[in-house]
């Protein structure tokens, strides 16, 4: 554990304050770590993933002896030091060639981990097509029923969403939507189809289990919007790269107690709720005293139907006498002025 630092000047205080927990969090920063040996393939995969994750990415250029599943203390330390919430550890061993470990942190401690093996890989540079702008948010596409049923794939989906798109935003610039990351599984094997319902809790039994899991295909496309004649454009996809074919390997589920802490949502302030959380709520606002104020627009009053003093001469049937009665009223008002 690091010792707690007391800021000595305003600048370092601001920097420390920026690291304090927030109600609505920023995107997680990802650190790319090379293990004791990572082959060329894994290195390139990490480089491409980093290109997609920029600017919330930090690269550790040197090798590190780190085994996340055995000892996560280094990860905790780096997380605190760099204020990072995600790790991608690339490691290639004889037993598990071309492995990538996605590690998610909570409060500078490991929350959960998921190891994947890279089988097929095409680099971004191999596609001679336009690329997306760094920093733009991608769309995410997941295809397979397993993302809803199988705990391993639920975790993977959550992990990838956190990696590429975790930040909560309240609005997005529509012309800024440039690319999509598509995650598709291979056809569900028949063993899994029946087994998931039966053996759901024991789905992470052993090594054999991961062998039966379907492959994962991650593809990245840029989006071309074509005019369709309606408000909604027609979408065409152009492969951008990288394209990855992956298999699931080891994993570590989050601790139930820690996960409960991590899933807590902030109680939204009344004022924010009144304001509609970005949704349009017309003619209502909360003033600085905390009172809800409404604005009422009253239509133009129809004075013609106003009930005045009832008189014989003003009856509905005698419309031709209107001018006369007007004059009469005028006369009376002047009289009253004189007396007063």
């Amino acid at each position: 554990m690091l010792r707690t630092v007391k800021p000595k000047n305003a600048r370092s205080k601001r920097a420390l304050d920026a690291r304090e927990p927030k109600e609505v969090e920023d995107a997680r920063t990802a650190i790319f770590v090379k293990g004791s040996h990572s082959g060329e393939k894994v290195n390139n995969v990490m480089k491409d993933l980093m290109a997609l994750k920029r600017p919330n990415a930090i690269s550790f250029s040197k090798k590190n002896v780190v085994r996340p599943f055995e000892d996560a203390s280094s990860l905790d330390f780096w997380s605190q030091k760099n204020d990072a919430g995600l790790f991608i550890v690339g490691q290639s061993t004889k037993k598990r060639p071309d492995g990538l470990v996605f590690v998610r942190m909570f409060d500078n401690r490991v929350l959960d981990m998921c190891e994947i093996g890279v089988e097929g890989y095409q680099a971004m540079s191999e596609f001679k097509t336009p690329k997306s702008t760094p920093g733009h948010k991608p769309l995410m596409h997941f295809a397979s029923e397993l993302f809803d049923t199988h705990p391993r794939f639920q975790q993977l989906k959550s992990m990838l969403m956190d990696f590429f798109n975790g930040e909560e935003i309240d609005s997005i610039c529509l012309p800024g939507i440039e690319h999509v990351i598509s995650v598709t599984l291979a056809p569900t094997p028949s063993s899994l189809n029946s087994a998931t319902t039966r053996l759901d809790p024991s789905s992470s039994k052993n090594e054999d289990d991961t062998k039966s899991l379907p492959k994962i295909h991650i593809r990245t496309y840029t989006i071309k919007l074509l005019a369709s004649g309606t408000r909604i454009p027609r979408v065409e996809l152009v492969p951008m790269g990288p394209s990855l074919d992956l298999v699931l390997r080891r994993h570590q589920d989050p601790d139930a107690e820690v996960l409960k802490q991590a899933m807590r949502r902030p109680k939204l302030k009344k004022q924010d709720v009144e304001k509609g959380l970005g949704k349009k709520r017309k003619n209502m606002e909360v003033d600085e005293m905390g009172d809800l104020r409404g604005r009422i627009h009253v239509a133009k009053q129809d004075l013609g139907r106003l009930q005045t003093r009832k008189m014989k001469g003003l009856k509905a049937g005698q419309s031709e006498d209107v001018n006369m009665s007007d004059a009469e009223e005028d006369g009376r008002s002047t009289k009253r002025q004189k007396s007063g």
Binding site: R28, F106, S158, S171, I172, L174, A262, L277
Partner: peptide
């Protein structure tokens, strides 16, 4: 585009 709050809940990075 004004986005609605997310339907999927992702774990927080900090308490």
């Amino acid at each position: 585009a004004q986005l609605p709050p997310p339907a999927t809940q992702l774990p927080r990075a900090k308490p």
